[in-house]
């Protein structure tokens, strides 16, 4: 990645862990020696309401902290896709949870569909780690931070006793991201 500003928006519903995923991604960038800002928007509901996390990564100063035209958009609900797709940068990457987002209107972007939540539930064993699977998918597709650094950031943030579960989720996500043909 060059020194310029790279933006990601992770959008879905409260309870899907997207704010945590945003924090981990930003922490990984800092661990990798880069600059990062993470912001969020959330409603009054701890579970179920609209939720979005934004991450800006750069090798230089980050003035405006929010995302303006994301390079990457992760959507984990149909509503998030409808609401945020328009802002995606031309040529940007859309990652959608295959089972939760049915409709993706055509447009000037790359679309990657991955059954993120299903992978968490069936391959990893716990739906709650879908956010970590998603991070793996994102990093596999963008290489915005080295995989090893991402794993370090995940391990530093997740609750004690869940390290193995999360490591498994991350690896499943990385594998899914690499195995997905972009169209």
């Amino acid at each position: 990645m060059a020194g310029e500003r790279w933006e990601a928006r992770l959008a879905g519903a409260g309870g899907q862990g997207l704010i945590t995923a945003g924090i981990i991604l930003a922490e990984a960038a800092v661990l990798a020696g880069r600059n990062a800002v993470q912001t969020q928007s959330y409603g009054p509901e701890s579970r179920g309401g609209a939720s979005r996390a934004e991450v800006v990564i750069s090798d230089g100063e980050i003035d405006y902290p929010k995302v303006t035209g994301p390079d990457v958009l992760l959507v984990m609900t149909q509503e998030a896709c409808r609401r945020y797709l328009g802002a995606l940068k031309p040529g940007g990457l859309l990652v959608a949870d295959q089972d939760l987002v049915d409709e993706v209107p055509p447009g000037p972007y790359r679309v990657v569909r991955v059954p993120i939540t299903r992978i968490a539930r069936e391959e990893v064993g716990r739906e709650i780690v879908a956010n970590i699977v998603a991070l793996g998918v994102l990093v596999a597709l963008t290489e915005v931070v080295p995989e090893g650094v991402l794993e370090e950031a995940v391990m530093a943030r997740v609750p004690r006793g869940t390290e193995e579960l999360n490591r498994k989720a991350l690896r499943a996500g990385l594998a899914a991201g690499k195995g997905t043909a972009a169209r």
Partner: peptide, 9 residues
């Protein structure tokens, strides 16, 4: 709210 909840390096 932006400055308080924002995370930065």
């Amino acid at each position: 709210e932006v400055t308080a909840h924002m995370r930065e390096r």
